[in-house]
Structures are given as C-alpha cells and as structure tokens.
Amino acid sequence: MKSLRVTLLYVGLTALAAFLLAPFVWMVLVSLHPSKAPIPTMDKLWPERFHWENYAFVLSMPDIPVARFFFNSIVVTTVVVAGQLLVASLAAYGFARLTFRGRDFIFLMFLLSMMFAGPVTQIPVYLMVRWFGWLNTYAALIVPGLGSAFSVFLFRQFFAAIPKELEEAARMDGAGDLRIYAQVIMPLSKAALATAGAFSFFAVWTDFFWPLLATNSMEMRTLEVGLSVFKNSYGATNWPLQMTAAVVVMLPLLVAFLFTQRYFTKGIMLGGLK
C-alpha cells in the first residue's frame, strides 16, 4: 500500500516535470533543424543531423549584435546587483539594528512602494531620465535599478535575527556602526547576500519593460530586448533560427540557476512570510 503510494507520487512528479520541461526540450531540438526548414512534425522532431551552424549564424549576425547584447546585459546586471546589495544591506542595517525617529514610517514607505512600482512610475521615470539626458545610456539602464525595496526587506528580516550580544561585544571594543555592519553583520549574512543577489540577478537580467523604453539604438539593447528585436526582424517564420536565439538567451540563465537554485528556496523561507 505504502509503496504503491510512493510509486504514484513519483509518477505524478515525473509527469509534471516532463510537462513543465517539454517545451524546452522541443525548443532545443527545433533549433538544430536547418534554418528556414518548414516546421518539423512530431515524428521528424529529431533532426537528421544537428545544424550547429544556426548558432554560429545567430551569434555573428552583422545587423543584430548579439555579442554586444551579452556585454550590455553583463555590465548592467553586474553593476545593478552589486549596487543593490550594498545600498539595500546598508539600509537594512539601519532599519533592523538601529533606533531613530521615523524609522518605522520610512520602512513602511519602502514596503508600500513594492505594490505600485510598475504601472504608475513608468512614464514619470522615463521623462525624468530623458530630462537627465540619460536615454540610451548605461546610466538609464543602471541608476533606476539601484534601489530594491524587496532586497531591503529581505536583508532586514535576516539582520533582525542576529543576536544582539555579538554587536554589543563589538561596541565594547569601541567599534562604530560602520565597522559593526562590515565586520560583524555582513560576514554572518552570506546566505542573505546570496539570496538577495540571486533574486535580483534574475530580475535584472530578464527585465524587459524598462530597457525597452530606455534604449532605442541597437548598441544599447540588452539581451532580453535584443531577442524581441531579433524575433521581429528575422523570426517571423524561420522557426529553427528563432528557437536558436531563444536557446542562446536561455542557456546562461539555466546555468546561473543551477548554481543559485538553493537560495531561491532559502530566501522565500526566510524572507517571504514573517
């Protein structure tokens, strides 16, 4: 009876995994069909030979600089994630470990902002960025992303759980708050850093809406926007090439996820619901 239940569970879990991942397998197989070939039917899904040249083509198109998109995404994501972690952890130290007037009210302002970041702020932020003369520059892609209320919240949850005694011992030794932050709290918070970093990495790397508005030249597009440009100009009906481009965009994300996946669970357990 018990083993039947376990078998059924495994069958269910595997079937679900197959359902969730089948489109990806399919995407890879189609990307290896000859470019411009008609849509492969199910029985001919396995290509007669692997057309890796699709990848060479997508990576070296003259008019759509995929290498440049990669470079932009790497620069933007690195700077935004690093900046966010620094800015948010400093703020969280203030909110979690220090007492000052207005603290809880200001923190509430952070929480509230999470609810309507999207629809209302897009137009004014665009106009502001245009007024600063930043459109189509890295500044436009980076600066608006440097703050993250979500990261502040996550760090604060984590910092609040660190025992007061550690901090008091450091204060006895004459350490100031900046030293306590840098030498006591942060070294204990590697898990929080990894979690906040993982969440913001994926959020920034796959952000579509803002880079779509903030850039208009091919050289400044990020990978995500670049892929949509590719789809509009090459894709239309060339399915193998479209799927090749999609794989090129997906692969780095998958690799990054395999390295960071445990922090997603951890982060939600520690930040999500208190």
């Binding site: 489109p23 990806f24 399919w26 995407m27 790397w205 796959t206 579509f208 990978l223 995500e224 926007v225 892929l227 949509s228 789809k231 894709g235 479209q242 799927m243 481009a245 999609a246 794989v247 965009v249 997906m250 994300l253």
Partner: peptide, 8 residues
C-alpha cells in the same frame, strides 16, 4: 527569459 518563453 520572458521573451524566450513567449517565443516558445
């Protein structure tokens, strides 16, 4: 990627 997934 939301764009890749949409294409898929």
């Amino acid at each position: 990627s939301g764009v890749a997934v949409s294409m898929l």
